[in-house]
Amino acid sequence: MSDTPVSVAFMCVQNAGRSQMSTAFAEHERERRDLADIVEILTGGTHPADHVHDVVVEVMREEGFDLSERTPRKISTEELESCDYVATMGCSTLELDADDSDVDIRDWALDDPDGEGLDRVREIRDEIERRVTALFDEVEREMASGTTRTSDIDNA
């Protein structure tokens, strides 16, 4: 397996819901797969909120994650351009040009949990967990094969 660091970012506008859930699941996957020294995880928003949405804190607590002390943060285009993978949540004001970038950009187009009922937020949470797990499966496959996003693009 390659030991080249891989950076993954989860971002949206407020960094108060979907991207925070994604980050928590990604941190769990990184630990579970023993990739702490290899995978860097970033999260942020273009216009961060003051706090993580209460309903998000509640449904993530049900799964054993405490997001109550997390603070949404701003993420810059420069930070995102340095990543190998960027997952946006369907609300991005991302300014990266996918055609001119080595970044693998994915728009997950997830509904905003803010203002939704618990059952709907649980559905969003569960979909995020599936997508994060699938992303880590892909990252591990690429690392094991020695391919990186840069080499894929260079050889395209």
Results as ranks from 00 to 15, higher is better:
A98S: 08
T88E: 04
I128R: 00
R131D: 04
H47G: 11
M11D: 01
E127Q: 15
G115R: 10
R33G: 01
V59H: 02
Y85C: 03
L135T: 03
R120Y: 09
T147N: 15
R106P: 04
E27K: 08
K74P: 01
E29V: 01
N15A: 08
G90F: 09
E63V: 11
D99R: 14
D37H: 00
I128W: 01
L96P: 03
R106L: 10
R30V: 07
R122T: 09
I105P: 05
T88V: 12
R33Q: 05
P72N: 06
F25H: 03
D114C: 15
D137A: 08
S7A: 13
T133W: 08
S82H: 09
D111L: 13
D111M: 10
R122K: 10
R149M: 12
M60H: 06
D102I: 10
D152Q: 14
I128L: 03
Y85E: 02
E78R: 09
L35T: 00
E142I: 03
D3F: 12
D3G: 11
Q20H: 04
D100G: 07
S92H: 03
L42S: 05
I38M: 07
S151N: 13
Q20P: 05
A9N: 04
F25R: 01
T23K: 13
W108M: 11
D37I: 01
R149D: 02
H53P: 00
S22I: 02
E29Q: 13
E81C: 04
E81W: 01
I124E: 03
F136T: 00
